[in-house]
């Protein structure tokens, strides 16, 4: 140790390294609390199972399908839903609220790295573990509900990429919402509004094709369906090549919009940080 400046690696290598280290830490933490995490995942399965049972019952009463969706396709939709939902777990506005209110953001602000990059890396690190834990759940659900799906190789590839897109869109949206805390201290009510909109306009509650036409039109102008409906439909919905690739482009569009939004809001928000207890 002396006054000689420490050598730096290139920015790109540094960024890749940050993601790798964040992922490593996330995996280590996931493994440390594996039982708690598994219970959390199991709890999360309750939501789609309720939807699935309801729609399979309705389908059975209507002669086997609802708006062209069979009981087997409903099963496929909601089983894939469980994976998409888990991939879609991101740092929430509540996390931002706690981080800002308790001054824990201070340590991150002192580092030469945009805090959202750390969050993205950390939560991305969960995903391989989540996928592993999901497999037995999916197998169990498939045994009970008999899903029907015949995806093409292209559909599988688009599904894989769209999971990352969905994760990024949802992360950026929720980070933007979280930054509101800099002005309001509490962000819960705004977040609840976001979740309500997401439930109706994303395909999370029901497949979008069961929604009224005006809701489907409205959803086309909003980011929500690209975080739930599109990835699921890509695998189970028999989408055309144009629909598959167009969906990825739409995701890219919303990622760009989200990135700009986060950057702009951050620039103003951070000026309001008073680090009360930090």
């Amino acid at each position: 140790m002396n006054a000689t400046p420490i050598r730096l690696v290139s920015p790109l290598r540094g960024l890749v390294d940050v993601y790798l280290q964040e992922m490593k830490i996330a995996v280590a933490q996931q493994i440390q609390y594996r039982a708690a995490n598994y219970m959390y995942m199991l709890g999360m399965v309750a939501e789609p199972v309720v939807y699935l049972v309801v729609w399979q019952t309705v389908a059975a009463q209507q002669g086997g399908s609802v708006a062209g969706i069979t009981a087997g396709q409903f099963a496929a939709y909601y089983i894939v839903w469980t994976l998409v939902r888990n991939i879609n777990i991101v740092f929430t506005p509540y996390g931002w609220e706690e981080r800002i209110r308790e001054g824990r953001l201070s340590a991150q602000l002192l580092r030469p790295l945009f805090p959202i990059v750390e969050d993205l890396g950390f939560f991305l690190g969960w995903k391989p573990v989540v996928m592993l834990l999901w497999l037995p759940i999916a197998f169990f659900l498939a045994l009970i509900f008999h899903p029907v799906l015949n995806p093409s190789p292209l559909a599988v590839a688009v599904f894989a990429v769209s999971l990352l897109g969905a994760y990024l869109i949802r992360s950026l949206n929720q980070s933007s919402l979280g930054l509101i805390t800099f002005w309001t201290t509490r962000v819960g009510p705004v977040f609840q509004l976001y979740i309500a909109a997401e439930l109706l306009l994303s395909g999370r509650l029901v497949p979008m094709q069961l929604m009224p036409a005006w809701v489907q039109t409205l959803a086309n102008f909003l980011p929500f369906q690209w975080t739930f409906g599109f990835p699921i439909e890509a695998l189970v919905g028999n989408l055309s090549t144009a629909q598959l690739l167009g969906g990825l482009l739409a995701q890219l569009f919303w990622i760009v919009i989200g990135s700009i939004l986060v950057r702009v809001v951050w620039r103003f928000a951070v000026r309001r940080y008073s680090a009360v207890s930090g």
Binding site: I6, R7, L8, V9, S10, P11, R13, G14, D17, V18, L20, Q21, E22, K24, I25, A28, Q29, Q32, Y33, R111, P112, L113, E118
Partner: peptide, 21 residues
């Protein structure tokens, strides 16, 4: 929840420090 060595590695990445230094 993790040993400090893991956090040190993360800080190395965040500050873009050359591994040898």
């Amino acid at each position: 929840d993790l040993p400090a060595l893991d956090s040190y590695e993360l800080l190395r990445a965040i500050y873009r420090l050359h591994p040898d230094d």
